[in-house]
Amino acid sequence: MNIFRFLGDISHLSAIIILLLKIWKSRSCAGISGKSQLLFAIVFTTRYLDLFTNFISFYNTSMKVVYVASSYATVWMIYSKFKATYDGNHDTFRVEFLIVPTAILSFLVNHDFTPLEILWTFSIYLESVAILPQLFMVSKTGEAETITSHYLFALGIYRTLYLFNWIWRYQFEEFFDLIAIVAGLVQTVLYCDFFYLYITKVLKGKKLSLPA
């Protein structure tokens, strides 16, 4: 494992923990898109079905289990435990516009036409756009809490670091997976606008707010 891959995983894990702690400590999921979190739960579930079919390493298995469990915990907090604080009125992105096209695409463009492989491909495609309901919510309300901005930054930078990891692997292991690379590029591009705001505002101690 190279440094980019490792930092990417740590960043992803940090994002998940930041979000869990934010909701749990404040007893509120205000400003968080339940739809994005639901999509991430679907992403992890469909991607990590290989937990049952092959073992790679203790690290790999434990990270997968943590990702799946925490995504379900987050969904549970939003739609059940702290349901009263969930801002559903602003969480209006139509997720079928993400799920249906990515599902169709995973049947058309995949490495192998088998159930597990199609589900894995679907999860890669869906992950690349799963943050859109959250970004849509931020743009709709015109602001995000600072802690939510940190969450979004950690989540966005994780896939960016994976891009460097893939360059590394191509260079030194002659390994590359075009499906993951293209989806990773799309995912990173979607965050660019947010990265700009994060660097120019949040890192300078200001709250992330968009011009009206």
Partner: peptide
Amino acid sequence: HAVHIAHDEL
């Protein structure tokens, strides 16, 4: 060469 992913990534 394009290698089918071994799913060793997360």
